[in-house]
């Protein structure tokens, strides 16, 4: 009799403490945290765009679309009976409504007041605790540390004490581009590799800024990496001004494959991998 009570009690408590398993992510950074922790969400917001713009970590085919990131579909979310919903500040106004459906976790990853890279680690850890995946999280952090150290070592072997500085941009039009400066994940990846940002920018919430093409004239040293695809590439390349830029004439421009810059730790690893891959194309001066 006593044993049955104890077993029942144990069962009950384990049921009560069971980690959420039906999770819906309404932001892309949250989607990335989940997939990194090995949790497959039942639905994510803007699923098709995620597959086109974020690409990795890859989304399993059975994950459903929860609507747009600005206005996810509440009725579908309800019908999927989630036990955890993750949002970012864009949906902060809807938190009260979402709480009616399931416990809702607000992860505020991008702010000017904090360091986005360490916030990504903190938030992913917070989520891991909530989902009972702390072991996976710590394994990932350990493995990332090893990988970054290795990449850094390879760069050190190749370039010695003075590796080239890197400037990372995404073109908005043939005359303007977003540049990644202080507090951006690309800059965090550069620092992890022991590289310097060749076009430093003032700190902002996302670390990005819209700038004009002639601003690239000041880039006298280092590499220019631009994130592909840019649909109006030909318009850019036929431009005399572009051809005259020192960085273009000296062939220091490289196109990076599509990569997401507003994710979390996984994105930092991926950015670091791609940046160091681009550096391999460059012979030491």
């Amino acid at each position: 009799m006593k044993i049955i009570v104890v077993v029942l009690g144990l069962l009950l408590s384990s049921l009560l403490q069971a980690a959420p398993s039906r999770v819906i992510a309404l932001s892309w950074e949250a989607t990335e945290y989940l997939l990194t922790l090995g949790v497959t969400p039942i639905a994510v917001a803007d699923r098709a765009d995620y597959q086109q713009w974020v690409v990795e970590p890859a989304l399993p085919g059975k994950v459903l679309d929860a609507g747009s990131r600005l206005e996810p579909n509440l009725e579908r979310i309800y019908a999927l009976k989630p036990d955890l919903i993750i949002i970012n500040p864009a949906l902060a106004g809807m938190q009260a409504n979402l709480e009616k459906i399931a416990p809702t976790l607000l992860l505020d990853a991008f702010r000017a007041e904090h360091d986005n890279a360490s916030a990504a680690e903190r938030l992913q850890r917070q989520l891991a605790v909530r989902l009972d995946r702390l072991a996976q999280h710590e394994a990932f952090v350990r493995q990332q540390g090893l990988e970054l150290a290795k990449l850094r070592q390879i760069i050190g072997q190749r370039f010695g004490a003075k590796p080239p500085a890197v400037c990372l941009i995404r073109f908005a039009s043939p005359v303007s581009f977003w540049v990644y400066g202080e507090n951006s994940l690309p800059e965090a990846a550069m620092h992890a590799l022991g590289l310097r940002n060749a076009c430093p920018q003032q700190r902002t919430a996302w670390g990005t800024r819209l700038r004009k093409l002639p601003d690239l004239a000041a880039l006298n040293e280092g590499l220019l990496l631009h994130i592909a695809p840019f649909p109006r590439q030909t318009e850019l390349e036929r431009s005399r001004l572009w051809q005259a830029l020192p960085v273009v004439r000296e062939r220091r421009v490289y196109a990076m494959p599509p990569v997401w810059t507003n994710g979390g730790m996984y994105s930092i690893s991926r950015l670091a991998r791609q940046i160091s891959a681009q550096l391999q194309n460059r012979s030491p001066d």
Binding site: D46, A172, S173, V175, S176, L210, L213, E235, R240
Partner: peptide, 22 residues
Amino acid sequence: NDQYSRSLLVWGAGDLAQNDWY
């Protein structure tokens, strides 16, 4: 098409900046 149209918005805002005589 929000991701795609970001650059469309930048362009459509009406700016005279040029990068050649095209």
